[in-house]
Design a protein around this nucleic acid. Sequence first.
DNA 1: GAGTTCTTTGTGGAATTCCACAAGAGAAAG
DNA 2: CTTTCTCTTGTGGAATTCCACAAAGAACTC
Lengths: 223, 223
Amino acid sequence: MFKRIIIAEDIDSENLGIVSSINVLTQTEAETNQSCDKTLSRIKEAIIKEKPYDLLISDLSFNLDTRISHNITTGKELIHQVKNVQPDIKVIVFSGEDKPAIIKSLFDNYNIDGYVCKGLYGLSELKKAISQVHFGNTYTCPVSKHALHQSNVTQLDSYEVQLLKLLANGYKQDEISLHFIEKGIEPNSKRSIEDKIRKLRQEFDAKTTIQLIHLVDGMGLIS
Amino acid sequence: MFKRIIIAEDIDSENLGIVSSINVLTQTEAETNQSCDKTLSRIKEAIIKEKPYDLLISDLSFNLDTRISHNITTGKELIHQVKNVQPDIKVIVFSGEDKPAIIKSLFDNYNIDGYVCKGLYGLSELKKAISQVHFGNTYTCPVSKHALHQSNVTQLDSYEVQLLKLLANGYKQDEISLHFIEKGIEPNSKRSIEDKIRKLRQEFDAKTTIQLIHLVDGMGLIS
DNA sequence: GAGTTCTTTGTGGAATTCCACAAGAGAAAG
DNA sequence: CTTTCTCTTGTGGAATTCCACAAAGAACTC
């Protein structure tokens, strides 16, 4: 079983429950940190001391202390940075987030080993996840498994995300065209931008472009 | 001090921390329920048995068991219903939500007594809130106090919310006009709808209506 | 390589939204 | 009662977006 576990979780009321639950399962003292920056530096220290952590359990969103400035502000960034300094560390995400697009993107782009949705049975699911990941498997809790397998999870490519973000931030179609030409992104003609937006409207079954942005916003596709 | 406390909180990993923390403060056993429906029925039972609860601590969002159908799905609804059956019960909201508009609306429209943002110091803030509310005061934790006092919290009236929701759901300006005429909502001419949208764009400093919807979406003003 | 399909871009026109000027209606102030 | 102000609605025209048809080019098949 894992011997050195580190947890990134800002909410103090959560920490208590998670730690005690893990201790029972693994018979080791898990360490929690309430900020991403602190977590990353602890992991770096551990590598130098040749006592690296073997499992990171991380939340996704953090209500950070506004009196201090922070480098890393989200779990996604934290995981990215951690994988850079220690590629072989196992990572389980433990978050309230249940949007399929976000869960899928974590497995696809961040190479995580497990995803557990906080909820009614979050803790027992987390224990299952830890066991499975220790055996070298990946694990998704039922809630997120359901989310992942539901009718074709829409994934947007980088071009589409950029386009939608520009729209959401008040760019007009010809401004987007100019912006893409500047950045050397193709296709970039006004006409192509227009067409791409039309196709996205179709794909999401949106009557107007306003509704399109509202929908992708709600699905967490452009955050 | 409060003698009968009931908690509505879906996340199991939270419950442990909250309950133990409250027990120390109040010297009573607080009861937790993981669903809104259950919480409401427990409160009703208690009234009938003439042992009513005197404090409700509620989360706002619930990841509910999808295998069961639920009447009440959000903390807001729960609070509304509870206040109907027992107007004098004290209510503290304990949630991760930090959007000013949402916090303000809870005090203004739902008549809550305290708001504590889950976070680094959530539990100690919750304890402060319980003490203050017991003295008959209201309490907002520093995080949400900061949110409330920041540059004029934008509040939208019901007309504006309806208008924005229709826009977000793919209605065109003249469809909105027709819809308002049907429902007897005024003003409802195409021209007035147009003007209202323009004013909202101005107010939110949005270059396009698409951006306007993106902004109010992000602030939780139309959810 | 010829044929087929898909993407990109163009053009013109329709639909929709945006904007400036203004008349009427109603509320508030003097 | 008159004046002033604000809100609603109207009109016309500009800007933007939407849509149908189509040509050029890239990619893929046989």
